Simulated scan of single mutants.
Amino acid sequence: MTSAGWYPDPAGQPNTFRYWDGTSWSEATTTNPATPAPGTPLPPQPPPPTSPYQQQPPATPPAPPTTHRPGYGEITPAPPGFPQQGYGQQQPYAQQPYAQQGYGQPGYGTPPAGGSGGSGAGRTVAIVLLAIVLVVALGVGAFFVVRGATGDDDTSTAGDDSSSSAGSEGSSPTAVPSKQQCKGGDPDPGELDPASPTLTGGGLTIPSLTDQGYTVDHRISKPYKFATAFEASYLVIDQQGGWISSYGVGALAKANGFDSTQQAAEALVYCMTHSGLYEGFTGATDQQVGAVTVDGHDAYSVLTEVRVDNPDVNVEGDLLQVVVVDTGDSDNYGVYISGVPLGDDNAAQQQSDEFDQISVG
C-alpha cells in the first residue's frame, strides 16, 4: 500500500498536492510537497536576539514631567494691541469667560488648541508666588509631553521687537510679544548639583526647596525659552497628569526687546500662556500686579490665576507669578518665575515665603 505523504491532488487541481495518510485522502492540501505532514508540531523557535539596548540601563535618567508645561510651540497669532483691561482685573474667573474678558478680550489672541504674594521686609507689595512649567519627575517617569515647535517663521507674532508698555499699574502691554521676546534666550543652565540648597540665575538667588521634596534638574528649564541659564526645581503634584509645582530664576536679555521690568513681566506671562505650555488653557485672572521691591531693587510682578480645561490632569490650573528685577546689570534683567496648583493654600503660602527670600547679587 502506498506510504503516507503528499501526492498530486486526485481532484486534478493544478500545482496542488493532497495528503495521503496511508489509508485515505485527507482534507489537507499544499503547493509544496516538502511541507510537514498535517498535525506535525513545529520545531521550537529560538528566542529573538536581545538588543544591547535592552541589556544596558539608559545613559541618563528619564526626563522630568510636564503635561501642562511642555516645550514651546509657536506663539498664537494675535492682532496688535492688548485689551484695555487684561492685567490687573480683580473680577472672579467666572465673570471672565475667555472670549469676552481678561485674556480673551478682542485683540489678545486665541488660546492654542489643545494645548499653574505675601509681604516681607523690603517688599513694597504683598504677592502670592507661583511657579510654572515644564516638565517631568526624575525617577517617576517621562511626564514631559513635549509639544513640538511648528517652525521658526515670524507669522505667529504681532508687534515689533521693541513693543514698549508704558502705562499705569495694572495696565496691559501695548503689543503682542515678538518671537524674539518669547524664544530668544538660552535656558539650559548646564548640569546642576541635585543637592544644592539654592538656585542662582540672572543675579538672583532663591532656595531650591530640595529639603521639602523638590528636585533640581537642568532639563526642567527647557520650556523657559525667553530666559538664559534658568535654574529651576520642581515637585510632582499630579503624577498621572504630569502636573508640577516649580520655582526658578535666570537672566532676561534686554537686547531681545525688553525695555522695562513691567513690559517684560507682562510679555512673559503672555508668552507662557499662549505657547502651548498650558495644555487646555482657557484664561487667566490677575490677582496682584504692580511695582515691587526685591532685596532693595526695583522690580515688577504679575501674579495671576492660570486656568486650564484638561481631562488628563486633576488640577484647575496654576497660580503663576512672574517677577522681573532690575539688578543693575546693563545687559540683563533678573527673572523669577514660580507656579503652584490653584486651590492649595499651603502651596500658596510656600510660594509667598519663597518670594520673600529672593536675594540679589
Rank of each mutant, 00 (worst) to 15 (best):
A4Y: 04
D9C: 14
P10E: 03
N15G: 11
T16M: 09
W25R: 02
T31Y: 00
N32Q: 01
T35W: 06
L42A: 15
Y72Q: 10
G73E: 11
T76Q: 12
F82I: 14
P83N: 06
Y93R: 07
G109A: 10
G117L: 15
V133N: 13
V135Y: 14
G139C: 08
G141K: 00
G151H: 00
D153M: 10
D161V: 15
S165D: 06
S165R: 04
S172T: 06
V176S: 14
G190A: 14
L192R: 01
A195C: 03
G201F: 08
P207S: 08
V216S: 04
I220S: 14
Y224W: 11
K225R: 10
T228M: 09
E231Y: 10
A232C: 10
G242V: 07
W243S: 13
G248M: 10
G250I: 05
A251K: 01
T261P: 03
A265Q: 00
A267V: 05
M272N: 04
E279S: 15
A284K: 02
Q288M: 05
V289D: 04
G290Y: 05
V292W: 06
V294F: 12
G296T: 03
G296C: 07
H297G: 05
H297E: 03
A299M: 01
Y300M: 06
V306P: 02
N314F: 09
E316S: 12
V322K: 09
V324N: 00
D326T: 01
T327G: 07
D331I: 13
N332M: 09
V335P: 02
Y336I: 12
P341Q: 08
G343V: 07
D345T: 11
